[in-house]
C-alpha cells in the first residue's frame, strides 16, 4: 500500500481527508469481498432446517458440524439418500491430480515455448509462430468445445467414429482420451495467455546476457535453467497461480469429458450435488413424493449448508496456492501491472 497511501505530505489537511477517504473506500471493498466468505462459512455451520428458512439468518442460531460430517461421508452407501457414488475425497484427489499434472507439465512447456520464441527464433519465423500461438486466444472456448470433445473421442480424428483404413474393414487405431484425466490435462498444458506473459518478460532480458552465457559455454537449456529461470521467478509465480486456479475451477470442459463417477472432479461433483438437491423427489412425481424426497434430504442433513462445506473445501487449494505465491504475485503485479 505504500504507493497508494504515501506518508509524504500528510500534514496537508486535504491529503489527510483524501487518504481517509481512500482507506474507507478500500475498507468497504474489502468488506464486500469478505461478506460472501462469511456467509459461506456461517451457513456451513447452521443446522439443516435453518439454512432454508426465509428470511435467512445472518448469525447461526446454533453451531453444528453436521454438514461437515455429512460431506465427509457423502458417498457412503448407508446414507438414506445416496447423493453421489464416491466419497468426497475421491473428487478432491481427482481435481488435485489433474491440476498438479496440468500445471507441472504446462508451465515448463509454456515457458520454454515463450523463451524459444523470444530468444532463439528471429525474423519472420518468430513473428509467425507468435501470432499463431496468440491467435488461439482469439477463438472463444465455446467455438472449440464440440470439436475438442470429438477430438477426445478418437484422438487424433475429429470424428465421433474412427475412420476406416482404406481398402480394409478395420478402423484406424485411435487414442480414446475421453473420460480419462488426460482429456482435461492435455488441453490445459499450453496456455496462450501464460505464453504471452512469459514472452513479454523474456523480451525484456537483454540478448547480451544470453550471449554472455553462451560464450561462457552454457548450453541453451542450461542457460534457461541457470540464468533465465531465476530471473523469471515472479512470472512463474503469477502463471502458476493463474493456471492452477483456472484448471482447478474449470467446470464446463470437465463436465463434458469426465463421466465415470470415480473420475469426476470437485467442481463437477459439486454441480451434480446441486442438481440432485434441486430435483430430488421430483422424479417420483406429485407434490407428496417431492416433499418426501425433500424431507429425506433434510433428514440426512444435506441442504445448502453441505454445499457451502464443499465450496469451502474447493476454495482451500486456491487459497493455499495464493499464500505460496503471494510474495511473488505482489511483486509480479507491481512489475507487470497484471489484472
Amino acid at each position: 500500500m505504500p504507493a497508494l497511501l504515501p506518508k509524504v505530505g500528510m500534514r496537508q489537511p486535504k491529503l489527510r481527508y483524501s487518504r481517509a477517504a481512500i482507506a474507507g473506500f478500500l475498507g468497504i471493498g474489502v468488506l464486500l469481498h469478505l461478506l460472501p466468505f462469511y456467509y459461506i462459512i456461517s451457513t456451513s455451520l447452521k443446522p439443516g432446517a435453518e439454512v432454508v428458512r426465509n428470511p435467512p439468518t445472518f448469525i447461526p442460531s446454533a453451531i453444528t458440524f453436521d454438514a461437515w460430517k455429512l460431506v465427509l461421508r457423502i458417498g457412503d452407501e448407508s446414507q438414506i439418500v445416496q447423493l453421489v457414488k464416491e466419497p468426497f475425497w475421491v473428487y478432491f484427489a481427482n481435481s488435485a491430480f489433474i491440476t498438479v499434472i496440468a500445471v507441472g507439465i504446462g508451465l515448463p512447456v509454456t515457458a520454454l515455448a515463450a523463451y524459444a520464441n523470444s530468444k532463439l527464433q528471429s525474423g519472420r519465423g518468430a513473428r509467425v509462430s507468435f501470432l499463431f500461438f496468440i491467435g488461439t486466444m482469439m477463438v472463444p472456448f465455446v467455438v472449440t468445445l464440440v470439436p475438442m470433445y470429438l477430438l477426445t473421442l478418437n484422438f487424433p480424428f475429429t470424428m465421433p467414429d474412427a475412420p476406416m483404413i482404406p481398402g480394409t474393414d478395420t478402423e484406424f487405431p485411435t487414442l480414446r482420451l475421453w473420460d480419462t484425466p488426460w482429456a482435461v490435462i492435455l488441453p490445459a498444458i499450453f496456455v496462450p495467455f501464460n505464453f504471452l506473459l512469459f514472452k513479454g518478460f523474456f523480451d525484456t532480458i537483454p540478448n547480451s546476457v544470453i550471449n554472455a552465457a553462451r560464450v561462457d559455454g552454457g548450453s541453451e537449456l542450461n542457460i534457461f535453467r541457470r540464468i533465465v529461470m531465476p530471473m523469471a521467478v515472479p512470472v512463474f509465480a503469477v502463471t502458476a497461480y493463474m493456471s492452477f486456479g483456472s484448471v482447478w475451477d474449470n467446470f464446463l470442459w470437465q463436465l463434458v469429458t469426465l463421466q465415470s463417477p470415480e473420475k469426476v472432479t470437485m467442481s463437477v461433483a459439486t454441480y451434480q450435488l446441486i442438481e440432485r438437491l434441486s430435483t430430488a423427489g421430483s422424479t417420483g412425481g406429485g407434490a407428496a413424493a417431492q416433499a418426501e424426497g425433500m424431507g429425506d434430504l433434510l433428514n440426512s442433513g444435506l441442504t445448502w449448508n453441505g454445499m457451502m462445506v464443499l465450496a469451502i473445501l474447493q476454495s482451500i487449494p486456491i487459497f493455499i496456492a495464493f499464500l505460496v505465491c503471494r510474495e511473488y504475485l505482489l511483486r509480479g503485479i507491481k512489475i507487470r501491472g497484471l489484472k
Binding site: P206, S208, V209, A212, D216
Partner: peptide, 28 residues
Amino acid sequence: PQSRGIGMVFQDYALYPTMKGAGNLKYY
C-alpha cells in the same frame, strides 16, 4: 560459441543479474 574458448565483454556488461559477482565468475 560455447566451445570457441573466447572471453567477451559486452557494452552493457551483461552480468547475470540473479547471481552474485562470484557466481558470475563461477558459471563458466
